[in-house]
Design a protein around this nucleic acid. Structure first.
Length: 876
RNA sequence: GGGCGAGUGGCGGAAUGGUAUACGCGGUAGUCUCAAAAACUACUGGUCGCAAGGCCGUGAGGGUUCGACUCCCUCUUCGCCCACCA
């Protein structure tokens, strides 16, 4: 008998499917649409990981079943190729990132294609393609236009030895630079930010509209971290400074006895300027800043502080609260200033250390413990049964019950206002690296000077002048921030031979004066480009939209022409001589430039396609992306919804995540451990079908699991048995009743398990069935074999197609020969040969089961006495 | 410190209130073979027993129930994520 030989059938069918365009999704098809999305890969130099295969095979099986159920399925793939890993890989291997990316994509593509995944390759996108990132930049311009992209001072990781900014991942837990081992520090630098906090409430609320697994939803809720409380506002004694402080436990507002402020707070200097406290306080601030650069600082939780010599005028209890700079106050959360009391563990510990006043207002019922609270021996906090003593109006009330009334009271008295704060921070959106989308902004000195001089605009300026939004200070001079006009997009990334991070903390692009210097699009005067690039998240924010009109992006791979690209990156419109400066002229230029050119807008053009496909029906990805990519892309999509670009408030109707695949030793796969499994090796040895089946069978889809070569062989055996039984144990007579029951049970189980993404038990059910088949004396009828092949097809598409075609050809003529099948591959047509290619198994309908057949002829009844099995009875 | 999840044979795991250990791996014995591999067949939680059969058994303890891996309470171990969030 002919042996099961995957290598002789897999490539053959992959080519046939591709030629037939079997997996192409059809826009506006009358069938119901189904959009399956996997996270598009970053094409690393290491090639395809078995983890990719796990997720993509499973979602492939899912998509194939949906297709068989009559859905118009879209299952696309693309490349997320900008970012730090690509740049570091390029630097290390001394290849230009554009070339490295191209090469890596080629390898990936070959590997992915050899697995027989049903991706629609006609929709492939690449984030580093200028035709693609044109629209990444366009989205940025829209954010800028709506005031949601702005610049602000942000602490960045800085390595003084390498003179470069670092991503958090490059700083080791002890605060040293991963590459050179020297200590790093935090320093403030102007960065672009996207105001994701403006969408915090919507991002939280709209989780109700989607079906995310509990784990994912909970993590998003925690990350957004909404807390409600009261915002107080008080004056600093003898100064024209007011501080706002947020408090989530306003019930104990009468207990506040001192104020603490974060070391990074810019007002700290004002508080101590010119006083005896200036020197020690500013030295303390420096010391803490350096300590905070170390990640371990968080864990040490040491509390240090210093008195500023200033006091808060705290009106509710008429006290003056000493203001201390304290290490544990988080500048980024709330306002960076907090009033402290005995009823908070941190404040309590701090007060004890520096002998600060404390004043309890809430006591436990237990008199012994109450005495300890009164004597300041213990910190008493957040116990629901705490009884308030102050203010007088609420004396004797339970802490928990007093919350609402006290907030009302505080608002009535004018002490503070109800408020909520979020853990979520604005998104730092600029990087001082080469390999990213250039931020489409131009800085113009002339425009700003003119605006300052123009009396009409001066009034406006007083109202709207915001540093980082309207102007930017560069080398001590103010520049207007001018967006690149939409018609001049994309701002192409120039080809650089030297793209290593510069020694100034600036982007390497800053050194390319040819590229940096441009004519201002508004006034035509000499201006300069923004040289920061976008983070690697930028391109992945909207790629699932790009798939919908990929062919219209006019794909071309990113090929640099070193001499031409610098010139071409300065559009003609920016090269013409300066226009006359007048308020009218400037306004006119601004209007012209910001106009959305409808006929040229890809989103506008493809509104109907977007409407047809969105939202994504299921988005499958790694759990590690729950808080960053998933939240970011929801935010960007919601923004696009608000400006009328997309038709739904949420991009993903359903989100699930998968567990990671560990090495055979149970550790994370890594070159340094030598435990990396290459999918090519497995597919080469056992075939792609076996690899796919194994990765679905290895364990529950959402669970972390270690690789096991022995178990791979088990799956190979399974497919071998399917092959052998299909060729030997099929008869023209009817299938026995027992085996038929077994088959229909499998059809039911596999269908339900696929729907619920329980891939492991679906495979087990098919294994169970072939065990019965093997044990059965007579075997399957041809018709029933077809049914079994249909349910196995989503898992093992190649072997099932081969067997399917053989059955069909047996019916209608001579069977397919191995030499004949090679001809299909070569010619793509089946003319003048002795066989016919029948419709692919993958375009057939999912089989149904007969509920009447699920009941076995003979059943076993267990006899239980007091819940214990005592006997069993067989009954027909 | 907070959140989420998990603990079942030698191993990966199945069973979500009703015969615990499906399916796979590994192991033992056998068939085939000059031999090996492959394949096939049977057995494979512990324990007592010649056997029939009994007893024990899902991290530990308690509870609900005719009946609990499954539901509730207490504890414990492990994993992941977040972490001085006022």
């Amino acid at each position: 008998m002919e042996k099961y030989n995957p290598s002789s059938i897999e490539k053959k069918w992959q080519d046939v499917w591709e030629k037939q365009g079997l997996y192409k999704a059809k826009d506006f098809d009358a069938r119901k649409k189904f959009y399956t999305l996997i996270e598009f890969p970053y094409p690393s130099g290491a090639g395809l990981h078995v983890g990719h295969v796990r997720s993509w095979s499973a979602m492939d099986a899912y998509s194939r079943k949906k297709r068989m159920e009559g859905f118009n399925v879209l299952y696309p793939i693309g490349w997320d190729a900008f970012g730090l890993p690509a740049e570091n890989y390029a630097i290390k291997n001394k290849i230009h990132p554009s070339i490295a990316v191209e090469k890596n994509i080629e390898t990936f593509k070959r590997q992915v294609k050899s697995l027989g995944l049903s991706f629609d390759w006609s929709r492939e996108v690449n984030t580093t393609d200028p035709k693609y990132y044109k629209w990444t930049q366009w989205i940025f311009l829209k954010f800028f236009e709506k005031g949601l992209a702005f610049q602000a001072d942000v602490p960045v990781n800085w390595c003084p030895s390498c003179k470069t900014n670092l991503a958090d991942e490059e700083v080791q837990p002890d605060g040293t630079h991963e590459r050179c081992g020297n200590p790093t520090e935090k320093r403030m630098q102007k960065q672009w930010l996207l105001k994701i906090t403006a969408y915090a409430d919507k991002l939280l609320e709209d989780l109700k509209l989607v079906d995310y697994s509990n784990k994912i939803a909970v993590q998003q809720v925690n990350w957004i971290g909404k807390s409600e409380g009261v915002m107080f506002r008080y004056k600093v004694k003898d100064m024209n400074i007011h501080f706002e402080m947020f408090d989530t436990v306003p019930q104990t507002f009468m207990a506040q006895t001192f104020t603490v402020i974060a070391p990074e707070h810019p007002k700290v200097y004002e508080l101590v300027k010119g006083t005896e406290h200036e020197k020690p306080v500013m030295e303390f601030v420096e010391k803490i800043k350096q300590k905070k650069a170390r990640k371990k600082f968080d864990i040490e939780k040491e509390k240090e502080g210093i008195f500023t010599g200033r006091y808060t005028e705290y009106t509710p209890n008429g006290k003056l609260l000493p203001i201390w700079v304290a290490s544990f106050v988080i500048y980024e959360y709330g306002t960076g200033v907090v009033n402290a009391s005995v009823h908070d563990e941190r404040d309590f510990a701090f007060a004890k250390k520096y002998n600060l006043p404390l004043h309890p207002v809430m006591f436990p019922k237990d008199p012994e413990l109450a005495e300890k609270v009164k004597n300041l021996e213990v910190c008493y906090h957040h116990e629901p049964d705490g009884i308030l003593q102050e203010p007088e109006e609420f004396k004797g009330m339970r802490w928990q019950d007093a919350r609402g009334p006290i907030i009302k009271y505080i608002e009535q008295k004018g002490f503070g206002k109800r408020s909520s704060q979020f853990h979520l921070r604005d998104w730092v959106f600029s990087r001082q690296h080469y390999w990213g989308e250039p931020i489409p902004i131009i800085y113009c000195r002339k425009c700003w000077e003119f605006k300052v001089q123009s009396s009409r605009l001066a009034a406006k300026r007083a109202k709207f002048k915001v540093e980082g939004r309207d102007y930017r200070v560069i080398d001590g001079e103010e520049y207007a921030i001018v967006p690149v006009p939409e018609k001049d997009l994309p701002v192409e990334l120039p080809y650089l031979e030297q793209y290593e991070p510069s020694g100034t903390g600036e982007s390497p692009l800053a050194k390319v004066t040819e590229w940096v210097n441009v004519a201002c699009p508004e006034c035509g005067g000499a201006a300069r480009r923004e040289t920061d690039t976008m983070p690697n998240w930028a391109g992945s924010n909207w790629y699932f939209l790009a798939y919908l009109f990929a062919s219209k992006l006019d794909q071309k791979s990113l090929k640099f022409n070193p001499s031409a690209s610098l010139r071409s990156s300065t559009p003609r419109s920016l090269r013409r001589s300066s226009r006359g400066l007048s308020p009218e002229g400037l306004e006119e230029a601004r209007v012209q430039n910001s106009k959305l050119i409808k006929e040229d807008n890809i989103f506008e053009e493809n509104k109907d396609v977007i409407k047809y496909w969105m939202p994504v029906d299921i988005y499958q990805g790694g759990f590690e992306h729950t808080t960053l990519h998933l939240l970011y892309s929801r935010f960007v999509y919601k923004f696009l919804y608000d400006i009328g670009v997309v038709p739904t408030p949420e991009p993903y109707a359903k989100r699930r995540s998968h567990g990671i695949v560990l090495g055979p030793d149970g550790r994370k796969m890594s070159k340094s451990f030598g435990n990396v499994i290459n999918p090519d090796d497995i597919a080469g040895k056992f075939g792609a079908d076996t690899l796919r089946v194994y990765e679905m069978f290895m364990g529950p889809f959402d669970q972390t699991i270690a690789w096991s070569e022995e178990s791979v062989e088990g799956c190979f055996r399974f497919l071998k048995r399917v092959w052998q039984l299909s060729l030997t144990k099929v008869s023209d007579s009817k299938t026995s009743a027992q085996l038929l029951t077994s088959l229909h049970k499998a059809i039911k189980k596999v269908g339900e398990d696929l729907e619920n993404m329980k891939f492991n038990t679906a495979v087990a059910a098919m294994m169970e069935f072939i065990n019965s088949w093997q044990a059965d004396a007579q075997g399957l009828s041809k018709e029933d074999l077809e049914k079994f092949l249909l349910i196995l097809a989503p898992f093992a598409p190649h072997v099932t197609e081969e067997l399917w075609q053989r059955i069909k050809n047996n019916e209608s003529g001579p069977s397919i020969s191995s030499s004949g099948s090679r001809e299909i591959m070569n010619n793509g047509e089946n003319h003048n040969s002795s066989f016919i290619i029948h419709n692919s198994i993958h375009s057939r309908s999912w089989p149904s089961y007969d509920p009447n057949l699920l009941v076995e002829g003979e059943i076993t009844i267990a006899v239980q006495v007091n819940g214990k099995v005592r006997d069993s009875i067989n009954k027909s």
